[in-house]
Simulated scan of single mutants.
Amino acid sequence: MIRVLVVDDEELVRSGLRLILEAAGDVVVVGEARDGGAAVAEVRRLRPEVVLMDVRMPGVDGLTAAAQILSLPDPPKLVMLTTFDLDEYVHEALRLGAVGFLLKDTPPRELAAAVRTVAGGQAMLSPSVTKRLLASYATRAPSRAEVARRRLAGLTGREEDVIRALARGLSNAEIGRELRLTEATVKTHVSRVLAKLGLANRVQAAIMVHDADLG
């Protein structure tokens, strides 16, 4: 069973998410929290595998809580809940190390699938919505672009091919088919790229590609 903590200031939203997730059969909601401060405390107490957390909440907001949760030893996979008009906040959450985001109107089946995806160690990089998010709200300051390009310049040609494909939201299997590599070889390349760039996950790698205008 995948252990999930749900964080939202609206009780109705929390209850709805619990019903949807626990209907999946392989997910259990181990706790709920109404603000970021309570979320941090519950993560310490319950040790969930996945946290679904709203961005905008009274008291301690989602971004502040995200920074605290992701600084804990062996932190859970963090997914932000949002509406599209808050995407700029989600972009910052991804920079902090969150593995993705969900719109609050995500269909129930997709919600459960997303939880399984992140629990399995994969980032949530939707080829459509996430790319639109990154392209719309990534800061395009020349200094940031230059830094990103310098860091990416240390990659081999094949590693650059892999990270470009990764930034488009492709899975390891899809990257392998596109580049004619085995899935195991792609996984090795991805691990090596993340280590070279000092990044925590695939989402941060995708952000760097977009910052460098290479996506």
Rank of each mutant, 00 (worst) to 15 (best):
H189R: 12
S171N: 07
T82C: 07
A184M: 11
V129F: 10
L170E: 13
V28A: 14
A206Y: 05
E174L: 11
E110S: 08
T156L: 12
V115D: 00
L125I: 12
K196W: 07
D85T: 11
M1C: 01
L181T: 03
L63I: 14
A145I: 04
I2N: 11
D26Y: 07
R34M: 12
D74H: 13
E10N: 12
R149S: 07
G169W: 10
V186Y: 06
G215V: 10
P76M: 08
G100D: 08
A41C: 04
L19S: 11
L102D: 02
V99Q: 11
N201S: 08
I2V: 12
E88L: 08
S136A: 15
R95N: 09
H91W: 10
L134Y: 02
E88P: 00
S71K: 15
A113H: 05
T64F: 01
F101T: 02
G198L: 05
T106I: 15
G31W: 03
N201I: 03
L81T: 00
P142H: 13
M124W: 14
G198H: 07
D211S: 13
L96C: 05
M53F: 03
F101I: 02
R150A: 12
L46D: 02
L214D: 04
G121S: 06
A119C: 02
E178G: 05
I175T: 06
L78N: 04
K187N: 11
E160D: 11
T117M: 14
A98H: 06
T83I: 13
G62Q: 12
K77S: 14
T83H: 13
A39R: 08
V4T: 09
H91Y: 15
T83Y: 09
G100L: 12
L19F: 06
V60M: 15
L134M: 15
V40K: 09
R3V: 00
H210P: 00
V209S: 08
H91C: 10
N201E: 04
M1H: 10
R180C: 01
V115L: 05
L5T: 01
G198T: 00
R116W: 05
G31C: 09
R144S: 09
G215A: 14
E178H: 10
E178W: 07
R132C: 02
A195C: 01
G59L: 12
A119Q: 11
A98E: 11
G37H: 11
R168M: 14
L152N: 03
R109H: 14
A24D: 14
D9I: 06
L103A: 10
L125G: 01
R34S: 14
V55I: 15
V6L: 09
P127I: 06
G59H: 09
M208P: 01
D9N: 13
P75G: 02
V129C: 04
A141F: 08
G97V: 03
